[in-house]
């Protein structure tokens, strides 16, 4: 009856169906009785009201019966949820899911890194949910799963077995600021052999850049560093204005920046890029807001910045 996209769908949907069935029945029933009373006991049809004060037996009935109903609902809710909270099977593949303003990233045991989550069909996967800044919530509607990513907490985990190959939405469900509604990704479920093939190919870190032949190896590496750190959530590649300036045509151009409240002209060179990544608030391009970006000092090395610059050069 249920399309078991993940191993939890059946339990959750049973609870939904049970609760909805009872609720719709009661809603329709009580409303119908109420409407009948309003019609039948209108003062035109019933000019004299009967003075009734109450009935203890009725009070007991409509206390006890609903109590039993809600306890059964509680039980359905608990049974459907319990397996999610149980420990993941020992052979579960361990993947780190990173949330940050405003993108997701995924790190695999062999060092692969992707923007979308790639998982094998029919095998247990456990996600270690990590937030780099504020509270996010990792939500896969099709799997009926949601768990907050709380910064500073190393306990946030989620596990599942995906049963049907395909691509499913991942959303951030906890409001996290300006581009909250753009913080989404997808989980791609692959048949096991296809997944193994993809997973073994460590050269192509990103499936998105796998076929990229136009760029030098350094530029591809640079793009991957940008993706890995979620830079593209705020900086576009095609000139679109997002939270921060676009990469397009960036290298070599002259920009007006604000330093200590004063306007200044600077040429965008390697020094500027290093400074922008390590001390983002020192020279803000005019028209953009300070305080939006964290420092990546210690997270991105100068050598990696050189690779990023190689990539920038391809976007002229």
């Amino acid at each position: 009856m249920f399309l078991n996209v993940s191993n939890f769908v059946e339990g959750v949907d049973k609870a939904f169906v049970f609760i909805f069935a009872i609720c719709v029945f009661l809603l329709v029933g009580i409303t119908a009785v109420m409407l009948y009373f309003i019609y039948r006991y209108n003062k035109k049809r019933n000019p004299k009201a009967t003075q009734i004060h109450g009935s203890t037996s009725l009070e007991l009935i409509w206390t006890i019966v609903p109590l039993i109903i809600v306890l059964v609902m509680f039980a359905y809710g608990w049974t459907g949820w319990k397996p999610m909270k149980e420990k993941a099977p020992d052979d579960a593949m361990q993947i780190t899911a990173i949330g940050r303003m405003w993108s997701f990233g995924f790190e695999y045991p062999n060092g692969k890194y992707t923007d979308s989550l790639y998982v094998p069909q029919g095998k247990p996967v456990e996600l270690d949910l990590v937030s780099e800044d504020v509270v996010h919530s990792f939500y896969i509607p099709a799997f009926r799963l949601k768990q907050d990513m709380v910064p500073g907490s190393d306990k946030d985990r989620m596990w599942f077995i995906a049963n049907s190959p395909g691509s499913y939405d991942i959303f951030c469900a906890e409001y996290c600021g300006l581009r909250h509604s753009y913080m989404y990704s997808s989980v791609v479920v692959m048949p096991p052999d296809e997944f193994e093939q993809w997973y073994a190919d460590t050269a192509a870190v990103q499936p998105e850049t796998a076929g990229e032949t136009e760029m030098s190896a350094d530029a591809v590496a640079g793009l991957n560093i940008l993706k890995k750190n979620g830079c593209n959530a705020c900086h576009s590649m095609d000139g679109t204005r997002l939270v921060g300036p676009s990469y397009k045509g960036l290298m070599g151009k002259t920009e007006t920046v604000m330093e200590n409240g004063e306007e200044k002209q600077v040429e965008i060179d390697r020094d500027y890029i290093v400074r922008a990544i390590y001390h983002p608030d020192e020279q803000i391009v005019k028209g953009y807001q300070a305080g939006q970006m964290q420092s990546y000092e210690g997270k991105i090395s100068e050598k990696e910045i050189d690779q990023i610059i190689e990539y920038f050069k391809t976007l002229q």
Partner: peptide, 8 residues
């Protein structure tokens, strides 16, 4: 209020 449905 039910756990399984709430998570969704």
């Amino acid at each position: 209020g039910a756990l399984a449905t709430n998570v969704h």
